[in-house]
Design a protein around this nucleic acid. Structure first.
Lengths: 348, 348
DNA sequence: ACCTCCCTTTTACGCGTGTAAAGATAGGAG
DNA sequence: CTCCTATCTTTACACGCGTAAAAGGGAGGT
């Protein structure tokens, strides 16, 4: 059980009886050496305990096999869902993921991308903080290595950076259309103006409403706190409105599920989930994203489900593609938009 | 805006006009060089773009400033809350966090700790998968560098490893006692037998119930799926029981909030949240942990709040302490138990 | 002006591995 | 048995920086 510990490849080479360069090649690709040799090494490795030094191996390789991922927050299951998809895809591609959270702070976000630069990462996946992001730092990195925006992007500042996310136009139209067909046209509870999704979803809502011949109504979106406490924010806004008797018999489309959860909470407290004739809901609330917890709400949340699996895999794929053909001059930017799916449950 | 890019410290030294060793010392501690020199370097750094190579700097230092964190899952806000606390504490201590998720797979967990070994991490914080963890791999790492279990631990296999978590005895007693005082004594909906918390909380419940002179009742806990889909699991179990008319007027203490969320969902579907005389709840459900989303449930979840902030900080603190006095022979293991706080809301 | 002390520079080596080039060796074909 | 070729060993250098030792330089005190 207590195998002898070997610290360097040099020692290992004498212990096994194979030269160090051969070992080096073996570790990078066991098939690059003769099968009898690779077998000999394999057996040798079972007798000792040796792990190649992480730093030394990555320092000289042209490709480090590292992919950095930066998210604005980790206390959000939507982001962790994405992260899980990314990690799974990365494992399959034999890449190592380095995750960093910005904690909502642009300075931390900047430090994170620079650290990834200093690690010679093969690529970077960033869900930007949004309006507050340090554009200079991000564009510097984007110019140096494969870079993908995920979830939202800096459309104005960095228009040419690859992007993977949901087609907000499609997703919002989908659910808006559904709501209009099945009841009163929805008002829109927007999210704080944090990132491109905020603007795009609102715009998509307005466009679809007009298209359907309805008047779009945006519920005021004053930002309080750090802007990422969606549930509390939505709860506060809706509680205030419900208290004054507004929107109590309406349809409310929320820009994301976390807002919807806050809105549901407010509605429940005001006892607004009674049923009308034929058991139809009087107050309806819908979301966007399909957070893992949305299905367990009461009423279970009707929402437009983002394809986090596809988005995460897509981000990794874009990077690996860029790596493969890194020889060619930088191509046109890739904008990969995935469609959302309607998830009809109870709330609308 | 386009500063000249400098790749090595060598180039930087000629560009600034300071020797390379002096730069090296400056980067490790700007105050270790004369103030006039540090000022000169600072100004020089503003004119160019240079980031020290991450690998090269860590390779030779005796201390890498890296701390590895391994969690069984990232799609759980309890873990990400812990992670956030850890990251915050680490930033203050000038440490870099490397996060790895096991994705519920022991093989990945093992690979993660070995990777941390190969990075010469200064310490490792592990929330173990539990029963499935690769004990050999974990103990190997624990023998090589500062190692802390967080949240749960491998009590039998690795009894001497440092641990930070919640005092389940205290927390479960606290809420059990509260429930008994305010209504019918609770039955206990345990979590699948994944880790030490599973056993400890159940045992604590039984002990406290007996202490109070009540008969403990454990709701059967058959594991289905991977065991980590708590909400779905609890929903299935309770839905089945409620359907058969069981426990519809009881008090249910759930081993964690995610179970409680599933239970609430089941109860809501069966319309079990009516009120008795004086507006008191007939069916009561309580949780444990205080997940970030628990307060937004309907009814808002009454629970025992773990002090994730203190636990996260505690883990980092233990590691830094171990590092500081690494000279002395390994002391006794540290078991740091934090108390939970009762969070009375609506559900019980 | 001299000496001392502190900081810096110079010089040199080391970390653990990648990698290239040249020489040595084994296995297979003829 | 000889020769060729794929593979291995040997040798050497590189990566970017940490770090130690010795030598150099400047400021302050006398």
């Amino acid at each position: 059980m207590n195998k002898p510990k070997i610290n360097t490849m040099e020692e290992l080479s004498t212990a096994i009886g194979v030269s160090r360069p051969t070992l080096s090649r073996y570790f990078q690709d066991p098939d690059s050496v003769r099968s009898s040799t690779s077998e000999k090494i394999r057996r040798g490795l079972e007798r000792v305990e040796y792990i190649p030094n992480f730093f030394a191996t990555r320092m000289n390789r042209k490709t480090t096999g590292l992919i950095g991922v930066i998210f604005p927050h980790l206390k959000d299951l939507f982001f962790t869902s994405l992260l899980e998809a990314i990690e799974t895809a990365a494992m399959e591609a034999d890449l190592t993921i380095i995750t960093q959270s910005s904690h909502g702070d642009p300075a931390i976000e900047t430090r994170a991308v620079e650290q990834l630069l200093s690690m010679n990462a093969d690529g970077v996946i960033v869900a930007p903080l949004g309006e507050n992001s340090d554009v200079d730092a991000l564009s510097r990195v984007a110019g140096r290595l494969p870079f993908v925006f995920i979830d939202s992007r800096l459309r104005d500042a960095l228009p040419d950076v690859d992007f993977v996310g949901t087609d907000n136009r499609q997703s919002v139209s989908l659910i808006t259309d559904y709501l209009c067909r099945t009841g009163s046209p929805p008002v829109f509870l927007g999210m704080p103006r944090l990132n491109s999704n905020s603007f795009e979803r609102e715009a998509a809502y307005i466009a679809e409403m007009k298209h359907l011949g309805h008047d779009p109504v945006i519920v005021s979106t004053n930002i309080k706190g750090d802007g990422w406490a969606f549930e509390a924010y939505a709860h506060e806004v809706m509680d205030d409105l419900f208290s004054r008797g507004h929107l109590t018999e309406s349809t409310i489309l929320c820009a994301n599920d976390r807002l919807a959860i806050g809105a549901i909470r407010a509605a429940s407290r005001h006892g607004l989930f009674s049923r009308g004739r034929e058991g139809r809901r009087i107050l309806r609330i819908a979301g966007h994203d399909d957070h893992p917890s949305s299905r367990f709400m009461t009423p279970a949340l009707t929402t437009a489900a983002q394809d986090t699996e596809a988005i995460g895999r897509g981000a990794v794929r874009i990077l690996t593609e860029r790596l493969r053909k890194s020889s060619g001059a930088s191509d046109k930017p890739v904008f990969q938009l995935h469609e959302a799916v309607l998830r009809v449950r109870e709330s609308a």
